[in-house]
């Protein structure tokens, strides 16, 4: 492929610099003391981390992907966490969002599903390409993680100012009949820039 230098220069001015700026804002707009902590679990079955993301961090990311304002506004209404999971077993580990329980004050909070987001995008008339990109940034609802395989992505909930816990169970084995493993994260909070 021949690279058109003039075109590269145009692209640099139009996209790279705004991206750099948005990346800088995402990295520095929240004082270090206010940054919500990442929680991690690392044992012989799995490695898992969950990191609260602020509305500004999410907005900066999707603005960098050229998302339109109505889509950005929708992301600001939700509470995002970036989740990473690595299977440490020599067997299949099943990630199934239906086996995750977010609980606050004894009540369960339902995470926003991919179907929920699709409905939001359709109501707001968001272009298919943005719907597609957004979906790829979400943690899959279901995945048979092979030995050593890792996956990452965002999970979202309706925004709340309460703390909550996450109890996540994982089935194992090709037919899900192996030993079940459960991990728990406590004192999770939506990341609030005003903290």
């Amino acid at each position: 492929m021949n690279v058109n230098l003039l075109r590269i220069a145009q692209i640099l001015s139009r996209f790279i610099f705004p991206l750099l700026i948005s990346g800088f804002v995402a990295a520095h707009s929240v004082p270090a003391s206010a940054a919500a902590p990442r929680q991690k679990i690392d044992n012989s079955q799995l490695k898992m981390s969950i990191t609260p993301r602020s509305a500004n961090q999410m907005a900066a990311f999707y603005e960098g992907r050229e998302f339109p304002p109505p889509a950005i506004a929708a992301t600001r209404e939700a509470c995002f966490f970036t989740v990473g999971i690595r299977n440490r077993l020599d067997d299949i580990l099943w990630h199934d969002i239906k086996s995750w329980r977010f609980v606050t004050d004894g009540k369960e909070i339902q995470p926003l599903s991919q179907a929920d987001w699709k409905q939001t995008w359709q109501q707001r008339g968001i272009e298919q390409r943005f719907q597609s990109t957004f979906r790829w940034t979400l943690l899959p609802d279901l995945r048979d993680l092979r030995p050593g395989e890792q996956q990452g992505g965002n999970i979202s909930l309706p925004r709340t100012d309460k703390t909550f816990s996450l109890r996540a169970s994982f089935a194992t084995g090709a037919d899900k009949t192996g030993k079940k493993y459960t991990v728990q994260f406590k004192n999770l909070r939506c990341h609030d820039e005003t903290e």
């Binding site: 492929m1 690279v3 075109r7 590269i8 692209i11 640099l12 139009r14 996209f15 790279i16 992907r65 050229e66 298919q128 390409r129 943005f130 597609s132 990109t133 790829w136």
Partner: peptide, 15 residues
């Protein structure tokens, strides 16, 4: 490339 604009792809892949 999955669901990105021509300009975004060009700027990344070109460099």
């Amino acid at each position: 490339n999955t669901a990105e604009s021509e300009d975004v792809v060009f700027s990344f892949i070109g460099s």
